[in-house]
Simulated scan of single mutants.
Amino acid sequence: MRFAGKSIVVTGAGSGIGRAAALLFAREGGRVVAADVSEGADATAAAIIDAGGTALAFRGDAGDEGDVARLVALAAERHGGLDVIFANAGISGGLANLFDTDVALITEVLRVNLIGPFLAIKHAAPLIAARGGGAIVLTASVAGLRSGAGSPAYSASKAGVINLAQVAAQQLSGSNVRVNAICPGLTETEMTRPTFDYAREAGKLDRLGRLNPLRRGAQPDELARVAMFLASDDASYVNGQAIVVDGGLSSSHPVTRQDYGKTAV
């Protein structure tokens, strides 16, 4: 019970990695606030309660400062403070290339994927520090490491998250608040489900993830377990790091080249 009695916030908890993490945190004794912009937050909180855990649902936008401030205040009020926040909420931004990416699209992707984690750190870190320390975990991506794993908007946002974890770890020096990021590879979530469903229907599921040495995509709980490790005292000396969980993809990041003005084949 690594999180017994601890107050934990998970954003993007309505599905995928966030839901898996919220369930795992609660299973290990955490008192969870499951936050999401969708009604999935309610379903996640209900599942935790049905299993005998402690949870609250919060409906809000992870990229809106007012919502984030209310979220962490709720956790502090109802659970006596805040020990951990897992800033996991994110959006894909589609597959448009650099020259077809609309400014409104990249602005929205950055708002949710990068400003969201920034707001989580800004509002959660003082509360965590006031408890004597704890952990902040951010969801980045292998797409933030180098080209070949996501659209320009998504990749830029996740590269920002990796740097944000490093900067925040430094600026929280002496607070005993650790900040780390996870970098998932291909994972079956709501964001990627159409791809997985299509592959299943076409009998080509074995082709997903074929570029990584494990030759498969990940399941959400495989990422959630790494996030939970980083949030726990087991990772007490891990700080300012981006932990890659991608089946080995980024050991080479193989990708089909796309020439300027031409379509990749």
Results as ranks from 00 to 15, higher is better:
Gly248Cys: 06
Ala47Asp: 02
Arg216Leu: 11
Pro126Val: 09
Arg111Asp: 05
Glu108Val: 10
Gly240Cys: 11
Ser38Arg: 12
Leu223Phe: 09
Asp83Thr: 04
Ser175Lys: 05
Tyr198Cys: 07
Arg111Met: 07
Ile48His: 01
Gln171Thr: 14
Arg210Pro: 08
Pro152Glu: 11
Gly40Glu: 01
Leu114Gln: 03
Leu82Tyr: 06
Ala69Asp: 13
Phe3Tyr: 13
Thr192Asp: 08
Asp246Ile: 14
Gly12Met: 08
Lys158Val: 07
Leu214Pro: 08
Gly40Met: 12
Arg146Phe: 14
Ser232Ala: 03
Leu110Gly: 04
Ala35Glu: 01
Gly18Asp: 08
Leu249Tyr: 15
Glu222Pro: 10
Arg200Gly: 03
Arg31Tyr: 08
Val9Leu: 07
Ala87Thr: 07
Arg193Val: 10
Gly132Thr: 07
Val161Met: 07
Gly63Lys: 01
Gly60Ser: 03
Gly261Val: 12
Thr54Phe: 07
Ile91Phe: 07
Ile49Ala: 11
Ser175Tyr: 04
Pro254Ile: 10
Ala143Met: 06
Arg131Gln: 15
Arg59His: 12
Arg210Ser: 15
Phe99Leu: 15
Ala140Gly: 07
Leu230Ala: 01
Leu105Asn: 10
Glu77Asn: 09
Ala26Arg: 02
Gly14Thr: 09
Gln171Asn: 14
Ala143Ile: 09
Glu65Thr: 11
Gly132Ala: 12
Ala168Leu: 02
Asp50Tyr: 10
Ser232Lys: 00
Asp64Leu: 04
Ala199Gly: 10
Ser251Gln: 13
Gly93Ala: 08
Ala129Glu: 10
Ile162Gln: 11
Asp67His: 11
Arg19Asp: 03
Val9Gln: 01
Lys122Arg: 15
Asp67Thr: 04
Gly90Lys: 01
Arg19Phe: 08
Ile48Ser: 01
Arg200Asn: 05
Ser157Glu: 09
Gly174Asp: 10
Val245Phe: 12
Ala242Ile: 00
Asn163Trp: 13
Ala76Thr: 05
Thr189Val: 09
Ser38Glu: 09
Glu39Pro: 02
Val179Lys: 03
Gly60Asp: 01
Gly261Trp: 13
Ser250His: 13
Ser232Asp: 00
Gly12Glu: 04
Ala165Asn: 02
Glu190Ser: 15
Pro220His: 02
Ala35His: 01
Gly247Val: 05
Ala124Cys: 07
Arg146Gly: 13
Ala159His: 14
Arg70Thr: 00
Gly116Ser: 06
Thr195Glu: 14
Arg200Trp: 12
Gly63Arg: 01
Asp206Ile: 04
Ala242Trp: 03
Gly30Ile: 00
Ser141His: 04
Ile49Lys: 12
Ser15Lys: 05
Ser155Asp: 04
Cys183Leu: 09
Ile162Val: 15
Val161Lys: 03
Asn163Tyr: 13
Ile17Pro: 05
Val244Thr: 12
Gly148Leu: 11
Ala231Asp: 06
Glu108Leu: 12
Lys204Met: 14
Ser151Asn: 08
Val142Asp: 00
Ala62Val: 05
Asp246Cys: 13
Ala96Gly: 06
Val37Ser: 10
Asp197Gln: 15
Ala13Ser: 10
Asp83Met: 04
Arg207Gln: 15
Val9Asp: 00
Val142Leu: 06
Leu145Ser: 04
Tyr237Ser: 08
Ala47Ser: 11
Ile121Leu: 08
Leu230Asn: 01
Arg257Tyr: 15
Ala13Tyr: 06
Val112His: 02
Phe25Tyr: 15
Ala21Lys: 05
Ser155Thr: 05
Leu98Lys: 04
